[in-house]
Design a protein around this nucleic acid. Structure first.
Length: 434
DNA sequence: TCTGGGGTCCTAGGACCC
DNA sequence: TCTGGGGTCCTAGGACCC
């Protein structure tokens, strides 16, 4: 049994994403990079996370460790940059701003892509509208984007991919409007290229005879629910044209907040781990307060380097706070206590992280106090302190931090090739030579 | 020397309650 | 003699996404 695709129902989804976003941002601000092969590295200059079209043409692969490909890449004339998240985040903000001219409902999905709802628009002009979006972003931001349009988020995603695959013919905009177009595209799409189907699922699906997106789309959702799981059932429905995500689902507040990072070099000393924890509690706390939430649970994890032939250790813990809090220092106290519980001397640690869980909205008037814990009585004062230090940190390069963050620095990030923060720092502005 | 840092959702299984 | 079962909450871990 298969549902009949009837084109658009009440929802029309467009997915707009920027082509090789990070390298494009670099190229926009540095004319010397225009038309060159460019690679942007992950934190710590670890892996290649973004690769310009020219670099792709030279065989550089996404995810490749930089230390393994560096020699070859340099020889081929590849330009390299460390991640410059301040710049990318600001460009991302402008990207969303531009999209908001085209629809009141824009839901950012990741740093370089967003769903734009086109519900209620005339079906005749959608492709044309997509081209206007593409041209506007190109003109105002200098970024190339691709647009996929369909009846559901999953179909819009597939359209977006088609815009990539058939770039020449489609000029960056692909709409799945008719039943014929839907079947044509799904038949040519591998199951693994569907949004939500990863390597594991794809292998299992192939074993049971489903290799193309069309074969999956023709399954009965109820059977898929019973034999596989709800996620797959939803994907089948979405491929059939029935949207399973509610408007606003994508844009909600974070449900957990994580700060973690690999160390530049292996760390064994407890004190240095504590310094890293202080850093992560500070960052996580900032993110938490920015979205107006408080956390009820603090978790932390600690791990050794799995690529090294050394004793391995991998541990995580979590603890409930006496009362939900926004306070970096409460998180830090809890995290340090937990660290003492799981720390094992003699291991060389590669990564540590803090996760804030059980998030809820801050209710300013009614803070739930714990009568057995005097420290919670100070929660009101603490909130004021946090608000003030966030303001200071937003204004000044070296604002306010827990002292232990400053005390140790040798685990900090490697960023050997970072470009200027062109759009957000006065002292790093682009200079025009006359 | 050097192998990312975020997130989401789902499921299974145990504890606990009535 | 007969030794429950359903619901809920929590946690850990897997799979996936960018």
């Amino acid at each position: 049994m298969s549902a009949v695709f009837t084109g658009y129902r009440d929802q029309i989804w467009a997915l707009v994403d920027a082509k090789s976003f990070y390298t494009s941002c670099e190229q926009v601000f540095d004319p010397a990079l225009a038309g060159k092969p460019v690679v942007v590295l992950s934190n710590n200059d670890g892996c290649c996370v973004a690769i310009s079209e020219q670099a792709k043409g030279l065989g550089i692969q996404r995810g490749a460790p930089w230390f393994k490909v560096e020699r070859e890449a340099r020889k081929l004339g590849v330009q390299v940059r460390s991640s410059n998240y301040v710049l990318y985040a600001d460009m991302s903000r402008r990207f969303i701003e531009e999209l908001s001219r085209f629809s009141p409902q824009v839901e950012q999905y990741s740093i370089d892509e967003a769903f734009v709802r086109l519900d209620g628009m005339s079906h005749e002009n959608l492709t044309e509208y997509g081209k206007q979006i593409r041209d506007t972003i190109d003109r105002h931001l200098g970024l190339a984007v691709r647009v996929g349009i369909g009846a559901t988020p999953t179909l819009a995603k597939l359209g977006n991919q088609a815009a990539k695959t058939y770039e020449q013919r489609l000029e960056g905009v692909a709409e799945i409007r008719t039943e014929h177009q839907r079947r044509w595209l799904l038949q040519r799409t591998d199951v693994q290229d569907i949004w939500g189907i990863g390597a594991k699922m794809a292998t299992r699906l192939r074993t049971s005879g489903i290799t193309t997106a069309l074969q999956l789309a023709d399954q009965n959702p109820a059977d898929m629910r019973r034999l596989w799981n709800v996620g797959l059932a939803r994907t089948v429905l979405e491929l059939q044209g029935v949207a399973c995500m509610a408007p606003g689902d994508i844009d909600e507040k974070r449900k957990q907040i994580l700060s973690s990072r690999s160390f530049g070099v292996g760390i064994s000393q407890l004190d240095e781990l504590k310094a890293a924890l202080a850093f992560h509690c500070q960052r996580a706390g900032e993110k938490l307060r920015q979205q107006g939430s408080q956390a009820g649970v603090v978790s932390l994890f600690l791990r050794t380097n799995r690529y090294k032939d050394l004793p391995q250790y991998n541990k995580s813990t979590a603890r409930v706070l006496a009362c939900p809090s926004q306070d970096t220092y409460q998180f830090l106290n809890s995290a340090i206590e937990q660290l003492h519980g799981i720390y094992r001397p003699g291991c060389e640690y590669q990564k540590i992280g803090v996760i804030l869980n059980d998030l809820s909205d801050v209710q300013h008037q009614s803070i739930q106090l714990d009568m057995f814990d005097a420290s919670t009585l100070n929660e009101v004062k603490r909130r004021k302190l946090m608000a003030i230090s966030d303001q200071l940190n937003a204004r000044y390069k070296n604002g306010v931090k827990p002292a232990s963050v400053i005390s140790s620095t040798n685990w900090h990030m490697r960023q050997a090739f970072r470009s200027n923060r062109w759009t957000t720092r006065l002292d790093e502005l682009q200079v025009a030579k006359c």
